[in-house]
């Protein structure tokens, strides 16, 4: 605010900063990725808005509603496997802190396997629904239900590819600025999927089941 001071001594004023090397690379990276994740969160918020609008009883067009086709305990196993996957990833990150490469890789592999379990359960659920004639084309309500859950599943799918890539990178390169930065970004990505799953699970599966 007091930028226009009266007297300035040209010899004492700092005009250039040769020693300035900028900012910490990893935190700059993770901020950018976090912003991406938030915009991804907005995608889910918009999908939830759409789901809310399309989950009135007339939106199911007289057809099956989630209260008829959701099985809470089945989906709970999905919840458990996703949470365990996230936990495994977290254990891997704790190992990384101790520069334990083997621990990290086993954590990643654990997360991978449990993520695959989650995805298989989801695919099984969807094919089961399709067999009962409940598809994306059944009614506006089922369209919203299936898109919302499957967009989440698609995130899991791409996360799994990324985990695979990171397993390969950590094995070949070890801990570099690049790999550590990416592992941190992936951690945010993976953990955010768990947070979003809480909403999907509670407000789409459970609420759909009870209403």
């Amino acid at each position: 605010m007091s930028s226009h001071g009266n007297t300035v001594d040209p010899k004492k004023t700092v005009l250039w900063d040769a020693e300035y090397h900028g900012h910490d690379v990893i935190s700059t990276r993770s901020l950018g990725f976090f912003l991406y994740l938030l915009s991804d969160g907005m995608i889910f918020a918009t999908l939830f808005a759409a789901y809310g609008v399309l989950s009135y009883s007339h939106n199911y067009f007289g057809g099956p509603t989630p209260s008829q086709f959701v099985h809470p305990w089945y989906t709970f196993t999905q919840t458990v496997s996703l949470f365990l996957s996230v936990l495994a990833y977290g254990m891997g990150m704790a190992a990384m802190k101790n520069r334990n490469r083997g621990g990290l890789i086993s954590g990643l592999l654990g997360a991978l396997v449990l993520g695959v379990v989650f995805l298989c359960l989801d695919v099984h659920d969807m094919t089961d629904l399709a067999r009962q004639g409940i598809t994306i084309a059944t009614s506006g309500g089922t369209s919203a239900f299936i898109i919302l859950t499957q967009v989440h599943a698609a995130h899991i799918f791409f996360g799994l590819i990324w985990i695979l890539v990171m397993v390969a990178q950590v094995s070949s390169k070890g801990f570099t600025t690049d790999t550590v930065g990416r592992l941190l970004s992936l951690r945010m990505f993976w953990h955010l999927q768990a947070i979003i799953w809480v909403f999907v699970y509670v407000f789409v599966y459970l609420w759909g089941y009870i209403s």
């Binding site: 458990v80 949470f83 365990l84 996230v86 936990l87 977290g90 254990m91 990150m93 768990a194």
Partner: peptide, 14 residues
């Protein structure tokens, strides 16, 4: 980002 933190997060939400 300790083991305890991740475990607490898992247990509470689970």
């Amino acid at each position: 980002s300790s083991v305890r933190g991740y475990l607490s997060g898992f247990l509470i939400s689970g």
